[in-house]
């Protein structure tokens, strides 16, 4: 497995981090041909956009339709019977637990994940990127290997241990990994980022007598803002969407985050209230969509420069 850890792997990502080079733009074409090409480009791109965004639009449109019209004869996205009824039903929640509670739970987990990941990943990344110590490259290789490791191999023993410790049905199993930098992707991302910061910075600070703690807190952290922002956004969204973790560890509906509540909703409402189910799905995605709209630039840049997955 050490082969996975060869330092060649991050290379392509790093190349991408460079400033954009000039794009091929042949000068020989006539203005008319250019214009025609541009029109074709936009037609194709817009058609693609429509196809790609259709599921999301359909979902949002359906959430405002009465039950009978979803998947019925009314194929248009817009319904004249527009109403918020589905959302009202969905807000009631399940079996006495309100949807607001599920929201709060998701939020607590996501914020916990962000705080934990930022703290632990930045500290660990500093060690990998800026401190020379024996065994560093071996550990770095192991960390890269965990990126590729199917996590199913650890879930059973992890479960047993948390069970023995009486921590099932608490948020501890879901959050402890975040505080211990278990999401190697974020450590890797920050290591890559820090390595690109000039080495003269800490050398100068060292000459001034600064220790690692001071270099880390007063020089590195402020400079790492872009990486910290990408990390926060992605760890928030990943935690928000996480399904398997809560499925394994949480028992009480009042502790459920939204994805689990959604599933419960699908199972429990045997009289299949499709509309409410879709309305709840929309609500569960809302924070992610808002995040995307607000931080869209950071997110897409983060992906292109750091090779993050969605």
């Amino acid at each position: 497995m050490t082969t996975m850890a060869t330092p060649t792997q991050p290379k392509p990502v790093k190349q991408a981090a460079e400033a954009p080079a000039p794009v091929y733009n042949p000068k020989s074409e006539s203005a008319g041909a250019k214009r025609a090409k541009s029109v074709i480009f936009h037609i194709v791109a817009l058609a693609l956009t429509a196809v790609v965004l259709y599921p999301a639009l359909w979902m949002i449109a359906s959430s405002f339709k009465p039950n009978a019209e979803i998947g019925g004869s009314n194929t248009s996205l817009w319904s004249s019977n527009f109403s918020f009824d589905n959302f009202v039903t969905a807000m009631e929640g399940i079996g006495g637990v309100s949807t607001l509670q599920f929201f709060t739970n998701s939020l607590v987990l996501a914020v916990g994940a962000v705080v934990g990941t930022i703290l632990s990943a930045s500290v660990s990344a500093y060690a990998f990127a800026r401190i020379k110590f024996p065994g560093r490259s071996i550990f770095f290789g192991m960390m890269i290997a965990t990126l590729l490791l199917p996590f199913h191999v650890v879930i059973i023993p992890q479960y047993i241990v948390f069970q023995q410790l009486g921590l099932v049905d608490t948020y501890v199993p879901l959050l402890i990994g975040k505080f211990l930098a278990a999401d190697a992707f974020f450590v890797f991302l920050m290591v890559q980022f820090m390595r690109n910061l000039p080495a003269e910075l800490d050398e100068a600070a060292r000459i001034d007598g600064a220790g690692h703690v001071r270099i880390f807190t007063s020089i590195m952290l402020p400079l790492m803002k872009p990486a910290l922002i990408s990390t926060s956004i992605f760890s928030f969204i990943w935690s928000w969407n996480d399904f398997l973790g809560p499925l394994l560890y949480l028992n009480s509906p009042e502790k459920y985050p939204l994805p689990l509540a959604l599933r419960l909703f699908v199972d429990q409402t045997q009289s299949s209230d499709y509309g409410a189910m879709i309305a709840m799905s929309v609500m569960a995605l809302l924070p992610v969509l808002v995040f995307f709209l607000v931080f869209q630039r950071y997110i897409v840049e983060g992906v292109s420069t750091q090779g993050l997955k969605g």
Partner: peptide
Amino acid sequence: AFYAPSLIGASVSIAIV
């Protein structure tokens, strides 16, 4: 716009939809 599905694609909501 093309990137958006990657962000939400793994969620329970999308599976339901």
